[in-house]
């Protein structure tokens, strides 16, 4: 892995994208890996097309795409008791659409440093770093 395109959710409403990006950059910097951040669009239709420009310009050796799945919030009146949602991460090679690795994480808050750490450990174990 030399150049990683990190593809995040459209905004930081449900997931702290900026925090995730910073943690990946920090964890991968010792390996000399350059990280470029991209964001999907809200109600995205054509991710291939949306990524075309950045892929051509940055020429990533790998892409890691993070999406948020269906979530649920438990509340009592106007008080939120708990919230959880599924975070999905998929690793691809270059511009390929064939997944190499898939990750799932049940998040309970916007900040998910453990997810990032687990992914980095998995990449290390898989020989990607």
């Amino acid at each position: 892995m030399q150049r990683l395109l990190l593809w995040l959710t459209p905004n930081d409403e449900r997931l702290d994208g900026a925090g995730i990006a910073a943690r990946f950059e920090s964890a991968l910097a010792p390996y000399g890996i350059v990280v470029e951040i991209g964001r999907s669009t809200k109600l995205e239709i054509d991710r291939n097309g949306d990524q075309k420009d950045i892929v051509e310009k940055f020429n990533p050796t790998y892409r890691f795409e993070i999406d948020v799945g269906a979530g649920r919030t438990a509340s009592q009146g106007s008080t939120v008791i708990s919230t959880s949602f599924l975070v999905r991460g998929v690793l691809y090679s270059g511009a390929s659409r064939m997944p190499l690795e898939r990750y799932h994480y049940q998040a309970r808050s916007k900040s998910i440093p453990r997810f990032v750490d687990q992914v980095v450990e998995s990449l290390k174990a898989g020989g990607y770093l």
């Binding site: 269906a70 979530g71 438990a74 509340s75 009592q76």
Partner: peptide, 14 residues
């Protein structure tokens, strides 16, 4: 069509 984020109040959806 699929359910997206749901807010629950006990056993039923709010």
């Amino acid at each position: 069509l699929h359910t997206s984020h749901a807010r629950w109040r006990g056993a039923y959806v709010q």
